[in-house]
């Protein structure tokens, strides 16, 4: 038998560690999308005095290297402070797995991004963001790059579904070019809210569909 990955990667692929969700996580992130292929969700539980990660879990809609990286990265993150965990790189994850094929970098780097975004999410929710840039339409657009329209496989920014973004006194209004009855309207609304509401100076987020 001649498999495309080394023994260690295969072992993590067959028996991934830390799989699943954490109920009421202190931080979470979903990165990637069905469009670029792979998608990873990362959940963390953080001890609040030292900001140490006491539990980390992941879910993957991805290929073998994506699953194996999700497994190793959650292992590496556990027990580290968020500052330490932020520094975990793709190279470290790959080394810990005994080496991933370079061409698979883009699938496996997602898990690393997922962990970093889950930490950012934790920081935002707990008022730990140091760099407090005021929220602008650009900041929101960056956030929305991970919200997908599953029908086209494009994110809602590139797919030109975001028609307008208005920000006033912490109230954000986002105008989406879809009817409210669209089958993914609910999903898209929830995802947009989730990603924008945590911004430090945002109080309320409203999504407006094109028939409202």
């Amino acid at each position: 038998m001649r498999f495309p990955y080394n023994e260690k990667v295969l072992e993590h692929f067959k028996n991934p560690r830390n799989v699943g969700k954490i109920e009421n996580p202190d931080g979470k992130a979903i990165v990637g999308s069905p469009a670029c292929g792979d998608m990873v969700a990362v959940f963390i539980k953080v001890e609040p005095t030292e900001h140490r990660i006491i539990d980390a879990k992941f879910e993957s809609y991805g290929c073998a290297s994506n699953i194996a990286t999700g497994s190793i990265i959650t292992e590496l993150a556990k027990g580290k402070t968020i500052e330490e965990a932020k520094l975990i790189s793709w190279q470290q994850a790959s080394e810990a797995l005994g080496g991933l094929p370079k061409i698979k970098g883009h699938c496996s780097v997602l898990a690393v991004e997922g962990l970093r975004e889950a930490i950012t999410n934790y920081e935002e929710k707990h008022g730990l963001v140091k760099n407090k840039e005021p929220t602008t339409a650009e900041v929101i657009k960056r956030r929305l790059k991970n919200v997908m329209n599953p029908i086209t496989g494009l994110d809602i920014v590139r797919g030109e579904l975001v028609k307008d973004i208005r920000i006033e006194n912490g109230n954000v209004d986002i105008y989406v070019d879809l009817p409210e009855a669209h089958i993914f309207a609910g999903n898209i609304r929830d995802e947009v809210k989730e990603r924008v509401e945590t911004l430090w100076d945002v109080k309320k987020v409203e999504i407006h569909f094109n028939d409202q």
Binding site: M1, F3, F13, G37, G62, A64, N66
Partner: peptide, 23 residues
């Protein structure tokens, strides 16, 4: 689910198939 993960698992079970997945 993703195709390359499926084909690898199937390969481990001695079954060779292919997928249209990018991976």
């Amino acid at each position: 689910v993703e195709g390359e993960s499926i084909t690898l698992h199937m390969d481990m079970r001695g079954i060779e198939v292919s997928t249209g997945s990018a991976c």
